[in-house]
Design a protein around this nucleic acid. Structure first.
Lengths: 338, 338
DNA sequence: AAATTCAACTACAACGTTTTCGTAAATAAT
DNA sequence: ATTATTTACGAAAACGTTGTAGTTGAATTT
């Protein structure tokens, strides 16, 4: 426990508690010599104001929450880094909550955040069935929220996202232009707007270039996903191009291809949304759509702080779009020389 | 703001604030019918106790801090997941702080934690020069700490670590038995005990098997590291076996080898401490020493909570050792068939 | 019948800050 | 010289919860 408090400082200095408090906040009501005495003693006694007393009194915690589906994923890890960087620069603290892609956990977390523990929330939705009541309740408590990447269309709040539709289109187009005839799209959720947009980009590109192909609906169970992908690639009429909406699925495609003896890119071309640092070192290197994860985190946090400082008014159509980048590599046929 | 509080509940129920408080904590002093009335109304009004008032009064925040060098790294990401899992199960909240491998930032964070904001800290040291005064100060404030992976030898606190010396020895031995004659060890810090232990394992294995080789001291500047590694591998008498102490450096070895046209494992064999999920998919797949990151996080958090519940007495030599696993893959010559 | 115990509640202070409202002395304005 | 203003501080009331120390009225014991 930190036991040095204002009262002790005040006693030692023959001042009142309020004077010491004001002096420490550099109030103009306090004379310079007094301030100096207070600062000196506070430093000497290593005074640290009790954040809970302060939060209680001021109704502000200088703390935000980050709610994400998982952390062992370079995208979210980088986003956290972006958020934490901005937050610490602003003197805020960052609480982290993992939903593990489970809407029930997400709801429990949202509910616990109604207590006023945090001044605001940065979040990315989980992929399981989206009932957003728990988030609406948070919003009704006037706790500002900012979404990033996996946004909710049903909630009026700032959203930081990538150009998912275009990226889905471009990814598909790239597969087609690399010579694929039968495609498959591996998606992670039918509830997330980003998934639907990527999927729509895929479908539109397919129609535009008159190709065939289906959509495989994967979930959060890795083993089930593996079986689905294996089944897909073991079929007689297997696709010769696979577009994975998240890197986890692309990794599984690689494993399945190894197991089935399929060559990438000769037999199957692969492209994926991904922020893997090792994409270029994979065998073969993986063509990716890389999102600016760190910047998305930074941007989301920046918007949140602007809201907290009341310098920001939320409009219904309030979104920032940070574009993803296509990085062409061997898995779609580039530089086949080995 | 959450404006429904005990006072409002009490007024509504014609009870005193203290009775409502006790009823909600299910005290035996309150009759069952009263409790039921209180519970019912609390639920109806969606009452959430103010955590800051409670923390102020009880001198306990039900919050812990996790202080780590970085998050965009599978080891730390998994450790966070382990910590968060245990913490949430215990009803605790997790604050996250990134030191970015900078001891000054680490000190600033430690200092801010002296305020009593958290009940305890789980931490892994940064790799830059270790002056641990800031941590000792935290300890003097009676804030329990538990180290994991990058522990401090100078501080009496529980430590969760891997068998770094043995792993360093085994990794080196594995390179030697794979046919390497000239080795090199890439280390990240001369201040971290884990680095020194891995290095000592390397040195002892070298002496034991009578091989030559040096140690390259890398830092936190990626570009400088790249130059160091490039210089090492461009030399006439370059090593034919490289043991990287962290995955970041192994990835750079791969890049340098590409650039220089060196073949792995034919020209250079590579082994690294790493938790990369894609280790087996790299070109060639990377032989790793994998640490049980998730379990280390869980274990560290578990110990911390035992301390917080006073069910734990710290002894000077208080450490849990979770063994790392050697995963042999192509980068050290296994299964050369492609 | 008086004293004791007990069950079920209430009053109030405390936790450490911040903020509102004063107030005394010093200075300036009239 | 009197009043107004300014400067520099203090007293006390919040913030919402919890713990200690009562206070009832009823049940039990003596």
């Amino acid at each position: 426990m930190n036991s040095v408090n204002l009262k002790q400082l005040a006693r030692e200095l023959n001042l009142s508690v309020s004077t010491v408090s004001r002096a420490l906040r550099d109030s103009w009501e306090i004379s310079t010599p007094t301030k100096q005495r207070v600062f000196a003693l506070a430093k000497e006694m290593n005074f640290q104001p009790n954040p809970y007393a302060s939060s209680l009194r001021k109704h502000r915690s200088r703390t935000i929450a980050v709610v994400i589906p998982e952390v062992a994923n370079n995208f979210f890890a980088l986003a956290i880094k972006g958020i934490e960087t901005v937050a610490r620069a602003k003197g805020y603290h960052v609480l982290i909550y993992l939903t593990n892609e489970d809407v029930a956990e997400e709801a429990a977390i949202a509910s616990s955040l109604q207590s006023g523990r945090v001044d605001g929330v940065v979040l990315s939705l989980c992929g399981s069935a989206q009932d957003t009541r728990h988030l609406l309740e948070l919003q009704q408590r006037n706790i500002p929220m900012v979404f990033f990447d996996r946004v909710s269309e049903g909630i009026t709040a700032p959203k930081v996202m990538t150009n998912d539709y275009e990226s889905g289109f471009v990814a598909t187009e790239h597969l087609i232009k690399s010579g694929c005839r039968r495609l498959a799209h591996l998606t992670i959720s039918m509830c997330l707007s980003i998934s639907l947009k990527r999927q729509q980009g895929y479908l539109d590109a397919m129609r535009r270039f008159e190709r065939d192909g289906g959509i495989i609906h994967c979930g959060s169970d890795d083993e089930a996903n593996y079986r689905l992908i294996r089944e897909l690639l073991a079929r007689e009429d297997r696709p010769d191009g696979v577009f994975a909406s998240v890197e986890k699925l692309a990794v599984q495609v690689y494993h399945v291809c190894r197991e089935l003896g399929l060559r990438i890119p000769e037999d199957v071309k692969v492209i994926s949304f991904s922020n893997l640092v090792t994409a270029s070192l994979l065998n073969p290197s993986l063509t990716t759509i890389a999102q600016p994860a760190f910047d998305m985190g930074k941007e989301a946090a920046t918007i949140l702080f602007r809201r907290l400082e009341k310098k920001y008014i939320v409009t219904p159509e309030d979104r920032v779009m940070l574009p993803a980048r296509l990085e062409v590599r061997e898995s779609t046929g580039a530089g086949l020389s080995r």
